[in-house]
Design a protein around this nucleic acid. Structure first.
Lengths: 196, 196, 196, 196
DNA sequence: AGATAAACGAGACGGTACGTCACGTCTTAGG
DNA sequence: CCTAAGACGTGACGTACCGTCTCGTTTATCT
């Protein structure tokens, strides 16, 4: 309670209340109207925020949408178990959010925004690097050392195989993810990378 | 992708010249501005066409964009060879168009449009059914009969595996397709579906 | 000047049925939407006529509207009575048509069209000359000869005095003409022109 | 015709600069194209103003045109002299503006707009009431008390007689007002209303 | 009785304008 | 300072209308 007062005492900085209301309204707008008909005016109106506040804190609308989508994802769990489960864990936050209709819509539109706007793609690609690609490389390197998979695997190719079906279902087909999606994806990836 | 010339003897005389100019301008606009900032006014201006002509012949802008993208794809070849090559053939039109920077952009934006607009998704899904999913089912059923792959494979799951990396590279990552992409995809799919 | 009388025996056979339907629809449109929002498409639709037919027979839309209005006016009666009544007779066709709400609207919009479009004004001014100004000059000259009015009256000034209140009520104020309007107008005019 | 600057300290800050530019462009457009072909786009373009700004501050285009016309009229002078001159004074602002070709056109089109659009007629009728009808009633009542004119005169009838020729020349005939128009109109009115 | 040539309905077309909405910038007033 | 509010110039939206231009299809003479 009393610790945070130290740094925040200085100047009236960014309002967390505004930020939350704006991201909520952004998600609502993405669900309601999708990416192309997304309206900043509508977000400002619904969040009772000034457009100036939006433009001050986000470099572009697409970044705001990506942030609104990624904010939904729960933190990745990291229990040390067998490799298949650890790889599957990487997809589990997405799988969980995509179970609800609204979460599915928000994620789809957020990824759409990242694809359509090269600048916002940066925000998205940073997330992909930190949350998927990086951990995946670590795990794969680990099990490659044990010769469970071939040592000369191509990481980006592996990423395509691993994430491709996510984009396929979530973004392109607008369809729910099937049962046990994360585990099956992990199994498929290992099967492809197996050295035989 | 071809409109029949059978009934053109009757009344509603659509101008093929306008249609071609509009689709060309659509492709140019998708390359230039992407999906969200796509401007119908700009297309009309550039095609020297009336906006009414656009709205008369396309149910929605997204449909027009999907059509503009799919129109680029060359006809699929169907030489009777081994299953891996026949499966790979399904991706070859896309692989070929995506080699050029502009073809890559147009296809990406067209798929974006199909994802963002549920109605236009129909046009896209019809193409997917006729050009990818249907042929793939035929080929897979054939080789399943020979026990090359498991007989109880899930077609939509196979489609995710087969097409997912396309969406991953083309749409999500905005990256070129790697060398021999079609053949590798076919091999991966068969490896996953293999019965062992 | 009058070439058309010669050629009417020849080929171009104008359809009176179309003409009547078009003028009816024109009146309906003037009542419904007024002059500025008058729509040729609407007229064609309602008259089940082609726009080509309209543009073939009328040099401008305003002319068509003026014609549609003036066509409503019954023929002027010419009973030989005292000068006041003969002058009043000139206004009676208008007075009669303006009694109904729709006739009032059509006449107003027709005169509006004539005022707004210099070319169509010709059609209107020809009517004014033949139906009002000419006859009025004859009558006034006649009674000026008997010294009932001053001999050096200004005809156009008299016309302003005589017709002005018509425009005032009908066009400007959108108000019905008062009782005995024609007779009072005749009396006023003679009072102004009286020589005392 | 003047908007007060008193309450401008409060919130809705209308740009006077925009308003003036828009009214100027409106006058130009009325002169150039008249009422039916009046283009809001053209006005916005010429005034370097947004169409939204136009639609925000005027309930209808016709109101804007009426305002643009009436704004031209100089303030009415009110020197206490004999009744004929005081009545003539009421017309003098119009007479003065109508002397120029452009003033003539603007006034005509403004009155046309008021006639064609019932809603905009209100703006016009308010002006007529305050600037013509009201003052005229006062003056006529005054001289009726001295038995110069009949005491039971009909004010609206008098208004028709007084203003009718204005509409006749200015609006209907598109002709200049004759010499000494205001004075003659006053004389005519008093002659008609004289009690003999 | 057929041929012929115009007028006709229908409606697509390139344009322009409509009235509304959105974008991103700016200004004002309040905490 | 940051915020809410909202006016502003710019320009796109999707619709309607303008005037022109084919299309076949009547239709009313003139062979």
């Amino acid at each position: 309670m009393n610790i945070k007062a130290a740094d925040q005492s200085k100047r009236p900085r960014r309002s967390d209340q505004s930020r939350a209301a704006i991201l909520d309204a952004t998600r609502h707008e993405l669900i309601e109207h999708g990416w192309r008909k997304f309206s900043v005016d509508q977000v400002a109106r619904q969040a009772r925020a000034s457009k100036q506040t939006i433009y001050r804190w986000w470099p572009a609308i697409a970044n705001m949408c990506v942030e609104a989508g990624l904010d939904l994802l729960p933190a990745r769990e990291n229990k040390g178990r067998d490799p298949v489960e650890r790889i599957g864990d990487l997809l589990r936050p997405i799988e969980q959010v995509a179970k609800t209709s609204s979460g599915h819509s928000v994620l789809r539109s957020a990824f759409l925004a990242a694809s359509d706007d090269p600048a916002a793609g940066e925000t998205f690609r940073a997330w992909l690097r930190d949350e998927i690609r990086g951990p995946l490389r670590m795990i794969l390197a680990e099990i490659a050392a044990k010769n469970v998979i071939r040592r000369d695997f191509d990481l980006d190719g592996a990423l395509d195989i691993f994430m491709g079906p996510v984009w396929s279902r979530l973004v392109i087909m607008r369809a729910p993810l099937p049962e046990d999606f994360s585990r099956h994806q992990a199994e498929h990836l290992l099967k492809i990378l197996s050295p035989n």
